[in-house]
Write a protein that binds this DNA or RNA. Structure first.
Lengths: 299, 299
DNA sequence: TAAGGTTACGGCGATCGTAACGATC
DNA sequence: GATCGTTACGATCGCCGTAACCTTA
């Protein structure tokens, strides 16, 4: 057993068990990969892959179980490299942030600018995706830190830090009936609703609010992206329910935002990263930056 | 970086940072070890060991941090090997059990006999030590399973299964005043006490019982070993406080056992193993055996 | 001066690359 | 027949062992 065999297994998982693609990724020839896999399987004494003819099509139960250990080894190996680099120079490096559109546009700008000033040598990659995909990116090492509201609390491999609490707001054009007067769930439900896609940005709390009430509501458009929702609200399609911090007094002056905190439960945005993943110092500082930026804000 | 360098680091930790001893353990010459360490430190870019002249005397902070990852890699590597062996033949193998004298002598015999019948091909190593040492043995891979009452619940790296609850008993020679009549803490405290050493077999609960009462008690002899306590009780030195299951009606017929469950809080014997350590199937079955043996017993 | 660590060098073996072959869609 | 995987063989590079040297208790 050696580390390149371990690396090979990890890559095979990524490439749908293709030896030739794995060879490309490892910058060696296919035949070498083929032999290394044979050697490893021989050492284990049992096949790790299901084969159709010569093609690898899936992993055996043993292979799947061993893959957990392979992942652990790879993680530790990466941690050693990150630790070493961080020790030599904790001001340079790369930070992969995965988050949803709403956080990226309405929460992250300020802390990221601050962070850039402290760490001009750190290259930031920002990746937008659904909360489900964010978690996957953490697990596959494509992201170091995920910032979002939904789902991350369930995964036992993740360290989760609460970041800030916020509530939803309703947005309507200025002349809309809901622009004035008290708002209740019943009044809201009388209009078509535009809000976030399932699994995004506090959508679960919106569901919960209406589930507990007698009113049925009609979501005629859902999007991952606050700006899409705003666009269609402007076109008069109905009432938008968005995250409070996504309403911008200046840019959205043509819209009226109505507080919904008495109707929809509070949402909490969280910062998540793999427990087993060593974050370089600047990564740890970035998280602190997020938390302090969050406490300075008020929603 | 490669696996033998990782292995080298682990062994250096075990050998007090002696390159020559490490070389012996790895069955290669000293010079090879020296060079591999140099290569690894060069790759990391910083020294991992503090040196006095050429001698290694300690680890640097970076080295200590990296050692955590090294341990993770070694653990995963061992798991792969165990998984492979277990898959090929889950009836043969080795099981290292670490436990205290009391458990080894008064609880384990029955479940171990049962286990041997199911798995005649599994070699059992039994290791007696203090609870503190047991935990250390788990961490260093010298034991797979630890069985004891104290301490294990605190360690976050350990998976802990409750096994059975028991209470203490007082033992005295037949003609002793405490052989008859109701027993209170005050009456107990009037006699010299013989019991387990600090950190052993529910000793903490004995402490707790007397701490909460007004009586001061005088432990004139403490031992890790129930049999030692019995011996000196027989010699008339005082009252023994031992685990209830350590009193044997036949063998200890010359002694009288008095239930102390109303005076000393219940103790719980637990089974512990490393969360990250893959236990072969027979090991998992052994734990089940322990639990079922425990439920059949009554103390 | 003995014991532990480093440096230099030669030899062996592991692993890669080339290339021809085999199988699968 | 094009793509993917396996087998064979030669070449290279990494790693070990021997041996001489250096350093410290």
């Amino acid at each position: 057993m050696n580390l390149s065999q371990i690396e090979l297994l990890r890559i095979l998982q990524e490439t749908n068990f293709s030896l030739s693609q794995a060879a490309d990724k490892m910058h060696i020839v296919q035949s070498a990969v083929s032999r290394q896999l044979q050697l490893f399987e021989a050492e284990v004494g049992s096949p790790l892959f299901e084969r159709r003819g010569k093609k690898l099509i899936a992993m055996t139960p043993l292979g799947l179980r061993i893959m957990l250990e392979v992942d652990a080894i790879n993680q530790a190996k990466n941690n050693i490299q990150t630790l070493a680099a961080d020790f030599l120079d904790s001001n340079h490096g790369v930070l992969h942030i995965a988050t949803t559109h709403t956080q990226a546009k309405y929460f992250l700008p300020k802390p990221i600018v601050c962070f850039r000033q402290k760490y001009p040598g750190v290259r930031i990659y920002m990746d937008e995706a659904s909360p489900e995909q964010l978690i996957n990116k953490l697990h596959t090492g494509k992201a170091d830190i995920a910032i979002c509201t939904e789902k991350v609390a369930d995964d036992s491999y993740l360290a989760v830090k609460p970041c800030y609490e916020w509530h939803h707001a309703g947005i309507v054009p200025k002349n809309h009936p809901l622009a004035e007067g008290d708002i209740s769930l019943e009044r809201l439900a009388a209009f078509p609703i535009l809000t976030y896609s399932f699994g995004f940005t506090g959508r679960s709390n919106i569901e919960a609010a209406f589930k507990n009430s007698a009113s049925e509501f009609d979501i005629i458009l859902s999007a991952a992206d606050t700006d899409v929702i705003k666009t269609y609200v402007r076109l008069g399609l109905g009432v938008g329910i968005i995250a409070g911090m996504a309403y911008d007094k200046t840019l959205d002056a043509d819209l009226v935002a109505r507080d919904l905190s008495h109707l929809i439960p509070c949402s909490e945005t969280k910062i998540a990263y793999l427990k087993n993943n060593y974050l370089p110092l600047y990564g740890q500082h970035f998280i602190e930056e997020l938390v302090s930026a969050a406490t300075e804000m008020c929603f």
